[in-house]
Simulated assay, not measured.
Amino acid sequence: MLRKKYLVKPKLQWRYFVILALIMAVLGVLGYYAFLNSLVSTPGIEQLSSGTIKSFKSAYSNGFFWVIFVFAAVVLVYSIFYFHRLIGPLFFFEKVMKKLSDGNVSMNVHWRKRDETKELAELIDAAIKSTRVSVLSDRKKVKEAIKAMDAKDTKKAKKLLQGVTKWCKTQ
């Protein structure tokens, strides 16, 4: 199963994207001022002329800005793909759980090999398969119990019905 839509839960994905962008902006500004302060307060810098220091600050600012801009752009673009591998499966699990809550146990959970939630997908798939097997077994027992009751064999019907839903632990 291939999920190609990258913004499956746009509000959630944009929120994480904005939070990541804000964190990177704050870290960029803090890094800029920390490095600029350490460069300007380096011993011996006072021997340079004010024009040289001004040129140095300008060159540093331009270089730092472009490095941070490119780094941030790469990280933010990568985050879209990463969030897709994380939030995409969560969106799919929500759909699966909705179907399960409606009583549909016929579906299987699919995952892509690069999804971040393979273990969870495998557990949910195993739970669905176990539930499906139990439901089918219970339906078969109920049909047999109905036949036994029609044949007036109440002991057999009781025995069959006692085994229904024993797979489900309620305590």
Rank of each mutant, 00 (worst) to 15 (best):
M24C: 12
A25G: 07
A25S: 10
A25Y: 15
A25D: 06
A25R: 14
V26G: 05
V26P: 00
V26F: 07
V26M: 05
L27A: 05
L27H: 04
L27M: 08
G28L: 01
G28T: 08
G28V: 10
G28C: 04
V29K: 04
V29F: 00
V29H: 02
V29G: 08
V29C: 07
L30V: 14
L30T: 15
L30Q: 08
L30S: 07
L30G: 06
G31R: 09
G31S: 04
Y32V: 06
Y32H: 04
Y33G: 00
A34E: 09
A34D: 06
F35P: 03
F35S: 13
F35N: 13
F35Q: 12
F35K: 09
L36P: 04
L36D: 09
L36C: 02
N37A: 12
N37Q: 12
L39T: 07
V40N: 08
V40S: 12
S41C: 03
T42P: 02
T42S: 09
T42Q: 01
T42M: 05
P43E: 08
G44F: 00
I45H: 02
I45N: 00
E46W: 08
E46S: 09
E46Y: 10
Q47F: 08
Q47I: 10
L48V: 06
L48N: 11
L48F: 15
S50C: 04
S50W: 00
T52R: 10
T52A: 12
T52Y: 15
T52E: 13
I53H: 02
I53L: 00
K54E: 12
S55T: 13
S55I: 11
S55P: 03
F56V: 03
F56M: 07
F56P: 01
F56S: 07
F56C: 04
K57L: 08
K57C: 07
K57N: 11
S58M: 11
S58G: 13
S58P: 08
S58V: 13
A59V: 11
Y60E: 03
Y60F: 10
S61W: 13
S61G: 05
S61I: 10
N62P: 03
N62Y: 09
G63Q: 05
F64K: 04
F64V: 06
F64D: 02
F65C: 00
F65P: 00
W66F: 02
V67M: 09
V67K: 03
V67E: 11
V67C: 09
I68T: 15
I68P: 05
I68V: 14
F69M: 03
F69S: 00
F69V: 02
V70R: 06
V70P: 01
F71W: 12
F71M: 09
A72D: 10
V74I: 12
V74S: 06
V75F: 09
V75A: 15
L76S: 06
L76K: 05
V77W: 08
V77E: 05
Y78D: 13
Y78E: 14
Y78S: 15
Y78V: 10
